[in-house]
Amino acid sequence: MNLLFVCTGNTCRSAMAEPLMRKRLDAAGLGDAVEVRSAGIAAYAGQPASKGAKQVLTNHGLDPDAHMATPLDDELVKWADLILTMSQSHKRAILERHFEALDKTFQLKEFVDDDPESLRILEEMGELQAEAQTKQALFMAEHADEIESLQQRYADSGGQDATIDDELAALQERLEASVQQEADQMMKLVAKLPDYDIADPYGGTQDTYDTTGQEIGVLLDKLVVRLKEEGVE
């Protein structure tokens, strides 16, 4: 299994989650079954973990200098079997570019939430997502000739036909309108869920980093239990 943690710069939250999770997997005998990586949606390649994150890792007996930030890219999204983000904004940013990753992208806190009411809401959201995906697939199939025609016109014009962009935008609007009902229902359900964001400690005191590290650690403990229950070996 390939597990990917994602935050903003890949120097704080996900930089702590990756080695902390790897340590837990080794202790649980799952180190060979799960490969763990981390990335940032706005990361600069090669940046070290932040000072506060390094101290958290040191306190857990981990090498604070082993981490180098990695920007999230298409290859990493395809590589991952499970993508766990630190906030809703990270999840949204991924799905805006990779809708195909919908079924494998969650917030960390969301993924391990075991509250019955939250689980009921998430299940209903999953059903809505499936309905939306089906509608979008049908829309694309029904408009396949139109899409092919636009692509051909674009190629014939060498990308110089300005009207094609307008027609593509109109097509996108129609696609979005086809699932507007599901989108509206989804927003109502999201409002009923607890806040799944893990606060960004960047720029905070060491106490702030320690608190975030502790929160992530508790969530990772629950994640290991869930992976074992799901038969990851």
Score class of each variant (00 low, 15 high):
residue 198 I to Y: 00
residue 172 Q to F: 06
residue 102 L to P: 05
residue 100 E to Q: 14
residue 143 H to L: 04
residue 163 T to K: 06
residue 118 S to T: 15
residue 196 Y to A: 01
residue 161 D to V: 14
residue 164 I to C: 07
residue 190 V to I: 09
residue 147 I to Y: 07
residue 125 M to D: 00
residue 173 E to F: 01
residue 175 L to Q: 14
residue 99 F to G: 15
residue 129 Q to N: 14
residue 153 R to C: 06
residue 118 S to R: 11
residue 175 L to A: 08
residue 162 A to Q: 13
residue 147 I to H: 06
residue 133 Q to E: 14
residue 196 Y to G: 01
residue 136 Q to S: 09
residue 198 I to E: 00
residue 158 G to W: 09
residue 203 G to Q: 05
residue 188 K to I: 13
residue 173 E to P: 03
residue 123 E to M: 15
residue 94 I to A: 04
residue 90 H to R: 11
residue 117 E to F: 09
residue 206 Q to H: 08
residue 107 Q to T: 15
residue 156 D to L: 06
residue 117 E to N: 15
residue 170 A to R: 13
residue 131 E to M: 11
residue 175 L to W: 06
residue 182 E to F: 05
residue 118 S to Y: 02
residue 152 Q to P: 06
residue 149 S to V: 11
residue 90 H to C: 07
residue 214 Q to P: 02
residue 180 Q to Y: 03
residue 166 D to Q: 12
residue 113 D to G: 02
residue 155 A to Q: 13
residue 126 G to F: 04
residue 147 I to N: 05
residue 186 M to G: 08
residue 170 A to L: 15
residue 172 Q to T: 10
residue 204 G to L: 08
residue 185 Q to K: 13
residue 185 Q to W: 12
residue 155 A to G: 03
residue 180 Q to P: 05
residue 186 M to E: 07
residue 157 S to D: 08
residue 144 A to L: 14
residue 195 D to T: 10
residue 141 A to V: 13
residue 122 L to Y: 06
residue 128 L to Q: 03
residue 204 G to C: 02
residue 187 M to Q: 09
residue 109 K to H: 01
residue 130 A to P: 04
residue 161 D to C: 07
residue 154 Y to V: 03
residue 140 M to S: 13
residue 110 E to F: 07
residue 192 K to W: 01
residue 119 L to Y: 04
residue 182 E to V: 13
residue 145 D to N: 09
residue 143 H to V: 12
residue 191 A to G: 03
residue 168 L to A: 10
residue 131 E to T: 02
residue 91 K to N: 04
residue 134 T to K: 13
residue 174 R to K: 10
residue 209 Y to Q: 01
residue 165 D to Q: 15
residue 206 Q to P: 11
residue 187 M to L: 15
residue 91 K to R: 13
residue 153 R to G: 11
residue 137 A to M: 10
residue 132 A to D: 01
residue 198 I to P: 07
residue 170 A to Q: 06
residue 175 L to D: 01
residue 204 G to R: 01
residue 182 E to P: 06
residue 204 G to K: 05
residue 170 A to E: 14
residue 136 Q to N: 07
residue 180 Q to R: 12
residue 92 R to Q: 10
residue 127 E to P: 00
residue 166 D to C: 02
residue 144 A to P: 13
residue 120 R to F: 09
residue 194 P to T: 11
residue 181 Q to M: 12
residue 111 F to R: 07
residue 96 E to A: 12
residue 150 L to P: 04
residue 148 E to Q: 08
residue 172 Q to C: 00
residue 103 D to N: 15
residue 175 L to I: 14
residue 212 T to P: 00
residue 111 F to A: 02
residue 162 A to H: 09
residue 100 E to N: 08
residue 185 Q to S: 10
residue 99 F to H: 14
residue 185 Q to P: 00
residue 128 L to R: 03
residue 190 V to A: 04
residue 140 M to F: 11
residue 127 E to Q: 13
residue 208 T to M: 05
residue 196 Y to P: 07
residue 194 P to F: 05
residue 161 D to I: 13
residue 113 D to M: 01
residue 162 A to G: 05
residue 206 Q to I: 13
residue 111 F to N: 05
residue 98 H to S: 09
residue 185 Q to D: 13
